[in-house]
Structures are given as C-alpha cells and as structure tokens.
C-alpha cells in the first residue's frame, strides 16, 4: 500500500508530475531566452511557457468535422500519460534513485517514443493533409533516431554489466545500479569508450525533441506545424506540457547515463547540481545547435541519423564489447 502511494507521489510531485513540468517549462523558457540572446533579441520572460499554457487552457476545443473524433481527442492524452509515467523513472542522483530497481532502462526505452506516436496519431486523425505529411515524416525520423538510442542504452548496460561482473547477468538494465556503479567507478561521460555514445546521445536529443535542424515533422514554414496544425486550446496545451515532460525525461536520462556524479550527500546541493547538469546538456545539444542550423529536408535528416549517430553508437558498442 505504501509502495503504491509512494509511486503516486513520484508520478505526481517528484520527480515526475509537478517537478518535471516546472523544470521542463524552465528549460523551454531558457532555451528560447538563450537563443534570443544569441540572435541579439531580448526573448520572452521565463514565465512564458506557463502563460502560454494558461492561455491555451482558457480557449475553446475545436475538432475538425472530418477528423476521427476519438483518436483526435485521445492522442494528446496518450502522449501526456506516457511521458508523465516516464518522468517518475528518471533518477535524480543523490536525491532520488528511480521508481524500481529492475530493468527500468527498458521501460524508459519503450515509453520514450510515446509522445512521437501521439503526434502521429493526432496528425493522422486530424484529417489534414499537413497532418498526414507530418505523420509520415515523424515516423521516418523516429525509425532513424530510435536505432542509435537503443545502441547507446545497450552500450551503457553492457559496460556496467561487465563492471559489476558476477552480480549481473551480462548487461545491466537497472538505472539504479547504473547510477550507483558510475558514482563509484567514475562517470561514463569521461570514459573514452563511451565518448562516441555520448556524442550520439547529444545528436539524438534534437531529433527526439523535434528541434532544428530536425524539426522536419512540424516544419513551420513547410507544413505549418504539421500534426499540431488542427490542435488548439487545452489539447494543444497538453501537447506543450508533454513536450516539457519529455525535455525533463531526455535530459535527466542523459545525466543518469553519462554524468550521474554527486556533490556530497546533502540533497539540496545535489538537486541544484542535477538541474545545472541538465541545463548544460540542453544548451549544448539543443539551443546552440538550433541557433547555428537551418532545417534539413526529411531525406537529409533521415540519412544523417542512420549514418552519423548510428555509427558513433555502434562504435561505442563494439569498444565496450571488445574491451
């Protein structure tokens, strides 16, 4: 009973739920703000994502006459639920160690594509041709960036599994153990064999977040936001909330996989340290890349993902296997 209660608290308040949302919105605002500063603009205030979401909530829900009503309504809920659950699995090193200590890496891998699937579902249910095009682009891109992600996770799991030796059976899929092992034996981000995997993860981030140069599915100047075109009001707000959760999840996962180091044992310090590490990861892989790039065409983006990050991740996987 207490376990269930605790799980609910983790999903609703910390680290999922409110905490993930607040952090996700903060990162989204900082991302826009830093990008604006890089372009010599002022940028929106840090409260802007909250204001946007609040305004969307007051708006009317419009459903296209030709849309598939149930799928159109359920898609954002589906994406939101997936990410809200996923956020509870993200460990905050030194503060919170994850929802359960067995195979949660695999659960995260299965939960991560859910927002993209929700987008595809919503896009195709909206009956708009732009939604349909966005659907096909999103699917193509997802196939391309999920492969390197799987290899990265495998490389991490194998390396830690080898490190633990007899305690584990080859590969270790528990984030708790992965984090604990790294805290004892040094972060994987500094391990030469894992540097290609880290780079691959940094490249994976803009793709999964749908940001430039890989914002092909929502491409504003081509597809007018693609799958999101017909969405408005609370449903669109749900998509932005999902995206904020996802920001927290992918950044938190990056920190857990590569830099889970802690500063002492006092939890507030570790919490701030986690927030800063996520922020650094975001600025490096999302904001800077976004402001230095234009949008690729879908064929270019697909070709890029099946070559560069896949090769990098494979490189790490082979290195881990050999060493």
């Amino acid at each position: 009973m207490t376990d269930t209660l605790l799980a609910i608290v983790h999903m609703a308040i910390f680290p999922g739920g409110f905490f993930a949302l607040a952090l996700g919105f903060l990162y989204k605002a900082l991302d826009r703000r830093v990008e604006a500063r890089l372009q010599r603009r002022i940028g929106p205030p840090l409260t802007q994502p909250w204001l946007d979401a609040a305004k969307l909530l007051t708006k009317e829900t419009l459903i296209p006459k030709t849309a598939c009503r149930s799928a159109f309504l359920l898609a954002p809920v589906f994406g939101f639920t997936g990410m809200a659950v996923c956020a509870a699995f993200i460990p905050v090193p030194g503060v919170y160690s994850g929802l359960f200590n067995m195979g949660d890496l695999l659960v995260i891998f299965y939960l991560l594509p859910i927002p993209a699937m929700a987008l595809m579902l919503g896009g195709s249910a909206s009956s708009s041709p732009f939604g349909a095009l966005g659907f096909s682009r999103e699917m193509l891109l997802m196939l391309a960036y999920e492969t390197p992600l799987l290899m990265i996770l495998l490389a991490v799991a194998m390396l830690v599994g080898k490190g633990l030796g007899a305690e584990s059976s080859g590969a270790e899929f528990s984030l708790l153990k992965i984090v604990a092992w790294q805290q004892e034996n040094g972060s994987l981000g500094f391990n030469p064999a894992m540097i290609p995997a880290l780079l691959a993860y940094l490249i994976f981030l803009p793709g999964t977040m749908g940001m430039a140069p890989f914002d092909v599915a929502e491409a504003e100047t081509e597809l007018l936001e693609g799958p999101l075109l017909e969405y408005g009001g609370p449903l669109l707000a749900l998509f932005t909330v999902t995206s904020a959760f996802k920001t927290f999840v992918v950044l938190g996962l990056g920190v857990a996989l590569f830099f889970p180091g802690v500063l002492g044992s006092w939890w507030p310090v570790n919490l701030v340290w986690f927030v800063l590490k996520c922020l650094a990861l975001m600025l490096l892989s999302l904001t800077l890349v976004k402001s230095a790039c234009g949008r690729l065409r879908i064929d270019q983006a697909f070709r890029f993902y099946v070559t560069v990050p896949t090769a990098l991740a494979l490189c790490s996987l082979v290195l881990v296997w050999l060493l």
């Binding site: 990008e35 890089l38 504003e220 100047t221 402001s291 234009g294 949008r295």
Partner: peptide
C-alpha cells in the same frame, strides 16, 4: 530564404 529553411539566426543577422 533563411527564414524558410528554418535558419532563424541567419534570418535575424541578415535583417540586422
């Protein structure tokens, strides 16, 4: 052109 290819920084720079 920079705006259409989603290159916002280049757009801002050229306009500046």
């Amino acid at each position: 052109q920079a705006h259409v290819i989603g290159f916002k920084s280049l757009f801002m720079h050229t306009m500046e």
